[in-house]
Design a protein around this nucleic acid. Structure first.
Lengths: 233, 233
DNA sequence: TGACTTTAGTATCGAGTTGTTACTAATTCG
DNA sequence: CGAATTAGTAACAACTCGATACTAAAGTCA
């Protein structure tokens, strides 16, 4: 990369090597997991990496991310969301100058990986990734947490029908803290986000739980005051 | 851009033209404004653009954005936040394949532009920008709104000391709705985000207002339940 | 000077929301 | 059968929020 001064002239772009990288998140065995694969060559210090590629042809960033997701997860295309672009000196497996991180959220179990040696790995127990990939995973988790109550992303981590306890478990997993059952259900009911099906699931012992599906009916969010939920310094 | 198949081999990056683009937001005359400049050449359909450039040398994306901000606003360096990367077919003034949008928030008035013909323009009254620049402005506004109660960004739009009415006005500007005075102040006090100075400001008629400064003291945000504040469908 | 207006800031009250504790319901396990 | 386990609900106290109303301190204008 050479420096090129632009004293007072108009700016110009510069050729840069680009990658699109994907953090696939899913609840596995009661914890949040990421899809990672092992490198074949031994010369790099970081032995594991996230799925990634460069955009092809006129493909947009989002299209490239969706293609990578399909390559790893099969044709059942999960939605991908952009997380952040990284363009600093943290190392990337393909030495990309700039990497645009995306995330995909997929339900529990329902995700047999077909491609090469991709495997689930709990976020608390990640192997050593290239620093830029590690940053993308962290940014993806933070992004999910931040958007959890503005956006129905929790439902992407569940199959089409689910029990309310499962839904609450997803929220607890993502927020990293326990929630109160009655309050959770009250809030859920007030938001009219789910509707009951007439099926029930018996999960081993205990009373069977009713299955629900995601069926948002909320029209206008009752606009509240500001809450200053920040946790500063 | 040529297509290059990668059937089962390892992915590689591809050279791509890159830009870093900046949406500078500021409250001006009671409305939210963006810094834009007029193009000199008449051949392009979009006559206005945001400040932008390509990263130089080993400069990171954030460093490039900070440099662009300094070039436009002078050496008083405002913080820049990444908003989103755009890599689709929306046109960019420099025809960048990928543009990483950043935003800077600067206080009212305190921003005399020195560089070329940059000027404030109210967001409700924007001229025709290149579509990608327009998208960056929209994404920046949305990003501010989303992060308003998680992050103390409102204070970046104010000078070091301010009245509580000014602070409330910023929130109302960004959220696009009126807030209740007593509730706003109660929430502010509970969060211990500001502390009073011993100065007062007389703003024409009416009782003088006490000046406050941003001085966050909150340790742990009292963790509440989920609120499902989404406004779906 | 003294009413009137304007803006700042506080107090109080009632309606609504939230967390807790306790309860009932339906299943499996022994 | 009874104990254990999970689902789901009820009732209540504590808290939160928004509306209204109030006081305070300035300017305006007769």
């Amino acid at each position: 990369m050479r420096d090129r001064p632009s004293p007072d002239s108009r700016p110009t772009t510069r050729p840069t090597s680009l990658s699109v990288d994907l953090a696939v998140l899913s609840p596995q065995d009661g914890t949040l997991a990421v899809l990672v694969a092992r490198t074949r060559e031994a010369r790099s210090r970081e032995r594991w990496f996230l799925p990634w590629d460069a955009p092809r042809g006129e493909e947009s960033l989002a299209d490239a991310a969706a293609r990578i997701a399909r390559a790893v997860l099969g044709p059942s295309a999960p939605v991908v969301d952009q997380v952040l672009a990284f363009g600093d000196n943290r190392r990337h497996p393909g030495d990309a100058d700039v990497s645009v991180g995306f995330m995909a959220l997929v339900p529990r179990g329902a995700t047999p990986v077909q491609s090469p040696e991709f495997t689930w790995c709990g976020v608390m127990d990640l192997p050593i990734l290239a620093p830029r990939h590690r940053a993308i995973v962290d940014a993806a988790r933070e992004s999910v947490r931040d958007r959890l109550d503005q956006s129905p992303i929790a439902f992407r981590l569940l199959p089409p029908t689910f029990t309310l306890s499962e839904l609450q478990g997803i929220y607890e997993l993502l927020l990293g803290r326990r929630l109160h059952k009655a309050s959770f259900r009250r809030a859920l009911q007030a938001a009219t986000l789910v509707e009951p099906t007439d099926e029930w699931r018996s999960e081993g012992r205990g009373r069977p739980a009713q299955l629900f599906r995601y069926a948002p009916k909320k029209r206008r969010g009752a606009r509240r005051g500001v809450r200053f939920d920040l946790l500063v310094g």
